[in-house]
Amino acid sequence: MSQHDTVNYEAVLSKFREDPFTYVDIHAMHTGQIRFHVHEGDQVEGLTGDFRHIKGTLLCELTRERNQKPIHCTTKGEVSFVNKDLDGKFVQAGEKIMTIRHPLKKREIIEQILRKVLVPFAAPEKAKYYFAMDIQSRIEKFGQRSVSVKAGDELFTMSLMKRDTPVFYAGESGLIHSVYFKQGQSMEQGEPLVGICPPEKIAVVEKVITRVKAEWE
């Protein structure tokens, strides 16, 4: 029996019950003059629509050289903090501007628990990562959870210091169950990029999903 079969579901779920939220900090993505469009306590929407094509609530606008950059909310929740002192000021990229309190959904709780169950494949270096061309085309064609990998497969292209280097998978064979990175985003060394589900863990994964769906309101 795998060690992950011994997940203490009651303890994990009660932890989520105590604080069923995640707190998403929003940072200025550019340097420019900021104008807020929400206040603390406001309810905000993330992307909606059948194709997630409707933008979320307008949180603020950054004006850079007369070009306005609207910043829309990407997650549903409540505005729990706004750095009001910055309103109308010139802010630098990366400055924290607000926090959204986001109520966790079943899917997100499942994903968090599965992080402890799945086999992670970590970033070998601090770099930007892309799926290898073959993997990417298979994901596009069949969906990520239908793509299996085995040791030695070229899984990623690592873009480091303007050089592209192939990254080969080393670990248990299985399906790409979860993807923890955005293509082209800089990832720290050791951060998990994907969670692989070996065949023998499919039952555990299904158990987690069933349990959370049944017990989480």
Binding site: M29, H30, T31, G32, Q33, T63, R64, E65, N67, K69, F90, Q92, A93, G94
Partner: peptide, 16 residues
Amino acid sequence: VWRISSYTDPNEILSI
């Protein structure tokens, strides 16, 4: 010294 998101964003450079 001013922090920006990218060395290739002309809007930010000119606004600074």
